[in-house]
Design a protein around this nucleic acid. Structure first.
Length: 497
RNA sequence: GCCGAGGUAGCUUAGCUGGUCUAAAGCGCUUGACUGUGGAUCAAGAGAGCAUGGGUUCGAAUCCCCUCCUCGGUACCA
């Protein structure tokens, strides 16, 4: 704290270090999810963390976007480059750049960190992982349906039980049809970002948090929350609001019935009718694949992101309840989402290229899995520590540790400084289950001693005096040197490590 | 961006109606009792000058202002 020279060690705002158990959990999770993607025929792709700023479709930080957005800087030829903020924009660039070589439909998945220069919030950081899969060059609702199936399968592979999640599907065309019917939207979905319909979509997107009453207020004059903060509304008339709410309240017994109800709400709009018929096609595909209502439903409340989706949109939510800081129960909520975006590649090629895909929020899903899966105690360090009682025997210890590693058991040689006492303490503090001990006695008798530290810790609860604690050498066995590995294996398996 | 709470040893906190605070405690850490054994116990010890800068005052961790950061909420989210 009182350092007068040198830099202060600190993490940049919005970034974090990932502890070992989380790194391993993430690796396992990503491996399971990606194996599902591969099973669906998606192939991997890696693009760099950095792209040209204009390829990402962002503006310069200071000039055009005072609130920032991306980490950008000039490279050695004074070109603006930036850290990618998602994996979709690089995909669009890749597809446009290799248009002639790619065999369409192109299906790829990609995992990696993305970066956003915005205010960190609860569970929001400036660097986080995304895990995307997309199909480019296929306009059929079959591709959308498949994305929903892959999403469901991926969640199950990651460890979420069936019933613990639900994929909710809506269609932006249908949604837009509802807005059109209410007289607040342009005829084209693609232009919906430029007017009041954005405000309406935003309002709907908040339903989960503010409730239907809140949404209705946001559609009208606006809404004031508990902290007194006022959010300006869309300023719709009551009859317009009624019309939209009719769409939002559309429900039915099963996907097919929901489609009927949605159709009723949008039947005056051509775009709307188109959207509903896409949903029906998706329903047929889901049903044929055996995906029932327990895995995928149609939900008119799903909006997703705001700008670029042009057709079906979907979101996967976890349905189990969690208890937050205050002990209040609430559903875990959304961990993945996606949809159809037929205009993204257009920026590069000047014509529409249909695309659909989804992205799993790796960090969100991870925090969910932590609550679902039993904790995997200290699986990240080597289970065996070879202690070095006599420094002159280091070569001997080296032989021991390599013998153990040779048998496929992760093992560590104590290379720090300090006496034997300190070494055992080190192993204990790190929760290592076994310590291999070899001093003069063992060397002379061609044996090794192996201490079960976890068992010993249990036994120590009944210790009354130090002499017996030391002399009895609890939870320790001495075996012939030749049986080193066999003994370790037996002890590791016998104690549920 | 806006509203609110807060920043005191590695960690968790006490102190905050200004004056033995040259800042306290628990945990953790170091060393020894215990020269080949983790726990417990006992003893000794290291470690912050109170986020930063400025102001008020005879005197500030304590009061006031700026900035930074953290944590909530809200807005935004390609």
């Amino acid at each position: 704290m009182n350092i007068e020279t040198g830099p202060i060690p600190r993490l940049p705002r919005g970034f974090r270090d990932i502890p070992p158990e989380d790194v391993l959990l993430r690796e396992r999770m990503i491996a399971s999810v990606c194996s599902v993607y591969r099973r669906y025929g998606f192939e991997p792709l890696e693009t760099p963390h950095i792209e040209y700023l204009d390829a990402l479709g962002k503006h310069l930080p200071d000039v055009d976007a005072p609130d920032g957005g991306v980490f950008a800087f000039r490279d050695d030829s004074a070109e603006w480059v930036a850290l990618r903020y998602d994996l979709t924009a690089p995909l669009a660039r890749y597809v446009a750049e290799h248009e002639k070589e790619i065999v369409f439909p192109y299906r790829r998945y990609q995992v990696g960190p993305v970066f956003r220069l915005e205010k960190p919030g609860p569970g929001r950081f400036r660097e986080f992982y995304q895990c995307d899969f997309d199909t480019v060059g296929a306009g059929s609702p079959a591709a959308d349906a498949e994305a929903c199936c892959a999403l469901a399968d991926a969640l199950e592979a990651a460890g979420v039980e069936r019933g613990g999640y639900i994929v909710k599907i809506n269609n932006r065309k249908a949604l837009n049809g509802a807005l059109e019917a209410a007289g607040v939207a342009p005829a084209s979905v693609a232009e919906s970002s430029s007017d009041n319909s954005l405000v309406v979509l935003r309002a709907i997107d908040k339903l989960e948090r503010v409730g239907m009453d809140g949404v209705i207020r946001l559609l009208g004059e606006g809404r004031k929350d508990e902290s007194g903060d006022f959010t300006k509304g869309a300023g719709l008339t009551n009859s317009q609001i009624d019309s939209i709410v009719r769409y939002l309240r559309a429900s039915g017994d099963g996907r097919s019935d929901v489609c009927d109800a949605l159709f009723e709400a949008v039947k005056d709009s051509e775009t709307g009718r188109e959207g509903v018929s896409e949903l029906r096609a998706i329903h047929d595909m889901l049903s044929a694949a055996g995906f029932g209502e327990d895995r995928a439903v149609f939900d008119p409340l799903i909006v997703r992101g705001l700008a670029y989706y042009t057709g079906p949109v979907f979101e996967a939510a976890l349905t189990f309840e969690t208890v937050d800081e205050r002990g209040e129960k609430k559903q875990f909520g959304s961990v993945a989402g996606g949809g159809r975006y037929d205009t993204l590649v257009e920026r590069f090629l000047g014509r529409k290229v249909p695309a659909t895909g989804a992205s799993i929020g790796v960090d969100r899903l991870m925090s969910a899995l932590k609550q679902l899966l039993p904790p995997d105690a200290s699986a990240y360090s080597a289970p065996v520590l070879v202690t070095t009682m006599d420094p002159s025997l280091m070569p001997e210890y080296q032989k021991l540790v390599f013998e153990i590693r040779g048998a496929g058991i992760p093992a560590e040689l104590f290379t720090g400084s300090g006496g034997f006492r300190k070494q055992l303490k080190y192993a204990d503090r790190r929760n290592l289950p076994l310590a291999v001990i070899c001093g003069e006695d063992e060397l002379n008798s061609r044996t090794v001693s192996i201490k079960d530290l976890l068992l010993g810790r249990e036994l120590s609860k009944d210790i009354k005096d130090r002499a017996s604690w030391v002399d009895d050498r609890p939870a320790q066995v001495t075996a012939p040197r030749s049986e080193l590995v066999a003994t370790i294996k037996k002890m590791l398996s016998g104690s549920d490590i």
